[in-house]
Simulated scan of single mutants.
Amino acid sequence: MNRQPAVAGAFYPADPKQLHAMLDQYLTDAETAAKVPKAIIVPHAGYIYSGPIAASAYIRLKKAHDRITRVVLIGPSHRVAFKGLAVSGAQYFVTPLGAIPVDQAAVQAITQLPFVGYGEQAHTSEHSLEVHLPFLQEMLDDFTIVPIVAGDATPGQVGQVLDALWGGEETLIVISSDLSHYHDYATAQRLDKATSQRIENLQYDALSFESACGRVPVSGLLKVAQEKSLTVKTIDLRNSGDTAGDKSRVVGYGAYVID
């Protein structure tokens, strides 16, 4: 069983050449850095809105294109309500750029946790994981993914999954989240700046769904970062008013790294 793309042609181009060209442009425009992150928090909107912000984090994987061989990807559920975390029985996740194998051993290992189960319905139409896959295909060589959709789960539960899959330099953690939704430009800037400060201060219990739609997976990562004495840095903070033009009703996007 393969998980087919649900938002190709909507959130990003369905044509492989157009998709590659768009990604290449975003990544060319982004500033790189010497250090390869262990974990990133990146937005998941349509590429014209959040693609440039996501690219600011993904470009930092360049030096590890042949070293990172597994990506643990956790994003929020937008369409299906459930408790815990949902994995998929799919063998591959497919995008216009090709098929990415799922790390079956890792999936089976975390299903031993009582709050992790198979939930195909949560994965079928979910865009919060899918939009990151072409970026990963553009930046990495051969890799597998551990795709996880987060429902109603605690920071501790997400943290247990991350601890189990943390691995070494071969494993990248990707957390998918947008920030504030549908405020005017100035209000969004103020709210998103405050949220970014909470993220940098590892205040995982101070985030609300109004501040970040991926609050559940973000909070879990911040809890683990606190326990491991790691630091989170904001590398990009913009909103759809900066990228797509309309400033009257915007969605906020941030990119963050744990080196």
Rank of each mutant, 00 (worst) to 15 (best):
S248Q: 11
K62P: 07
I148N: 02
P13V: 12
S180R: 09
E31I: 12
S248P: 00
Q203L: 07
D142A: 14
R198Q: 14
S176K: 09
R198L: 14
A106L: 11
K62V: 04
A8K: 11
S240Y: 07
M139R: 14
S50Y: 09
L221E: 10
R198H: 11
S88A: 03
F135W: 05
S128V: 10
P13A: 13
D66Y: 07
R190Q: 15
D242I: 11
A57G: 10
S177H: 07
T111M: 15
Y253L: 09
S240M: 07
P13L: 13
E31C: 07
I175N: 03
Y185Q: 03
V224N: 12
P52V: 06
S56H: 09
L97A: 06
D103K: 04
R238H: 10
L97R: 00
S208M: 07
I199C: 02
T124P: 00
T234H: 01
G252F: 10
I110W: 08
A6L: 06
A106W: 04
I145W: 12
H181K: 09
S180H: 11
A81V: 08
T32N: 06
D192I: 15
S211Q: 14
A54R: 05
I74T: 11
G214K: 02
S248T: 14
Y26R: 04
V71H: 02
L23P: 01
A105Q: 13
R238Y: 08
E200Q: 13
Y26Q: 03
W166S: 13
H20R: 12
V174K: 03
L162V: 10
A64V: 14
A34Q: 14
A122P: 01
F135P: 03
D15A: 10
A194Q: 14
D24H: 14
A150L: 02
G245L: 10
E31P: 02
Q108T: 15
S219V: 04
F143V: 02
T195K: 10
A194E: 15
V232C: 07
A212K: 00
V149L: 08
T195N: 05
I148K: 08
I175Y: 02
P114V: 08
A86L: 02
Y92A: 02
T32E: 00
L165G: 08
G168V: 06
L207T: 03
D163W: 06
V71Q: 04
G75R: 01
V80D: 11
D259P: 12
P217C: 03
P16T: 12
L73W: 05
V216G: 04
V116D: 05
L27I: 15
H132E: 00
Y185L: 05
V161Y: 04
V149R: 01
Y92W: 11
K247V: 14
A6S: 12
E120Y: 01
Q18K: 14
L73H: 05
L230P: 00
V107P: 08
V251E: 05
E120N: 04
P13C: 12
I258T: 10
G156K: 14
Y47V: 13
A99Y: 02
K247P: 00
L162F: 08
G75Q: 02
A212Y: 02
Q104K: 15
T124R: 14
A8P: 10
K38L: 04
E169H: 03
A225D: 00
G245P: 06
Y118G: 03
R79C: 05
G89N: 15
R60L: 11
A33F: 05
V71C: 11
D259F: 00
A153R: 08
Q104F: 00
D141M: 06
S88G: 01
T111N: 12
Q157P: 01
